[in-house]
Nucleic acid binder design. Structure first.
Length: 322
DNA sequence: CATCAGGGCCCTG
DNA sequence: CAGGGCCCTGAT
């Protein structure tokens, strides 16, 4: 499928703004059938907004003092005014274009250990690249699996049910709509070697297809209410809910659940020690960064994965099991 | 060749 | 609320 119709507009992000830190998250696992593409100053992804699919391209324009985003939206046919307005609102929300980082930046400027890292990524946002359903699929293939296996599962699912979209001379994949799995049996999903996750994917897709989950309503709830609603979903426990709260609902303080593999990486990052108790890590991070505990951790976390692109970090390689 | 844990969650007792 | 089971893979 190719989208050739294009409409462009500019957005002015709140200052300061860090384009590359915002639109490339090196800690995310790379599967082969790509959902997004990035190079310095440019970013492409397929974009789900309601039941519609678009191609999205973002480019860094303007200057460091006056940052600007050039947004290009590719679609099958010309967009109505309403849809365009909706998309603008959605893009601003998803990528935190308007985020007020003043208080956060003031706080981390005084950080005794990590202020250089916060300075380096000044203006970075935590983005919601995906719709709730899309990220649910991704986090489910992450559960109880090594990175390589997660890649295999997502690739297999995309190859069978995904949509290959060409726009701006680039080919990317998009995750199917929930209703596309209406007539797909649990066994057919199992045949893609997703194991017991087939049941999760099937049930979740049914619930979304039946309109039982309203992402836009959840955005308006408090953190605790949203978490409660998410945990009701079949296959969604505390860890998955935490990821969703941060990466979809922009809750900056969800540093409550620390899994064993994260504990090992945090121990090295924060203390340069092999293993610090999860309880101590949680208390220290919450005390140091308060309502920005997850956002602050996100900066430090992504920074080490950026460094990994150019240097070999022995202890990290050991923790990233392929 | 077997055995086992892994970017968790569900279900049972 | 603790513990077993779950799918499949690659590591040992």
């Amino acid at each position: 499928m190719e989208f050739k119709t294009r409409i462009q507009f500019n957005l002015t992000p709140s200052y300061p703004f860090h384009f590359d830190g915002t639109f490339h998250k090196p800690s995310h696992f790379p599967n082969n059938l790509k959902l997004e593409e990035w190079e310095s100053g440019k970013y492409w992804q397929t974009l789900r907004c309601g039941n519609e699919l678009y191609g999205l391209k973002l480019e860094s324009k303007g200057t460091a003092i006056k940052p600007k985003l050039l947004v290009s939206i590719f679609s099958k046919k010309a967009l109505s005014k309403d849809k365009l307005l909706n998309l603008k609102v959605e893009i601003i929300w998803r990528f935190e274009v308007d985020k007020d980082l003043k208080e956060f930046n003031e706080m981390v400027k005084r950080d005794k250990i990590f202020s250089p890292i916060f300075k380096k990524w000044l203006g970075m946002r935590n983005t919601a690249q995906y719709s709730l359903y899309e990220l649910l699929i991704i986090v489910i293939v992450l559960q109880n699996a090594t990175v390589r296996r997660s890649q295999q599962m997502l690739d297999a699912l995309l190859a069978k049910y995904g949509i290959k979209l060409k726009f701006d001379n680039i080919k990317l994949w998009a995750i199917w709509l929930p209703k596309a799995l209406d007539k797909v049996s649990e066994q057919e999903l199992r045949d893609l070697k997703v194991g017991y996750r087939a049941k999760f994917i099937k049930k979740l897709s049914q619930d979304f297809s039946a309109g039982k989950v309203d992402e836009y309503r959840l955005r308006k709830l408090s953190r605790e209410e949203t978490k409660k609603e998410l945990m009701k979903l079949y296959g969604i426990g505390p860890e998955t809910a935490r990821i969703l709260l941060f990466e979809i609902f922009h809750q900056d303080d969800v540093f409550d659940h620390i899994s064993p593999w994260q504990q090992k990486i945090y121990s090295m990052l924060f203390y340069n020690k092999k293993l610090v108790s999860a309880d101590k890590i949680r208390k220290d991070v919450q005390r140091n960064y308060g309502k920005y505990s997850m956002l602050a951790t996100h900066y430090i976390w992504e920074d080490i994965f950026w460094r990994r692109k150019n240097e070999h970090i022995e202890w990290l390689e050991k923790e990233i099991r392929l």
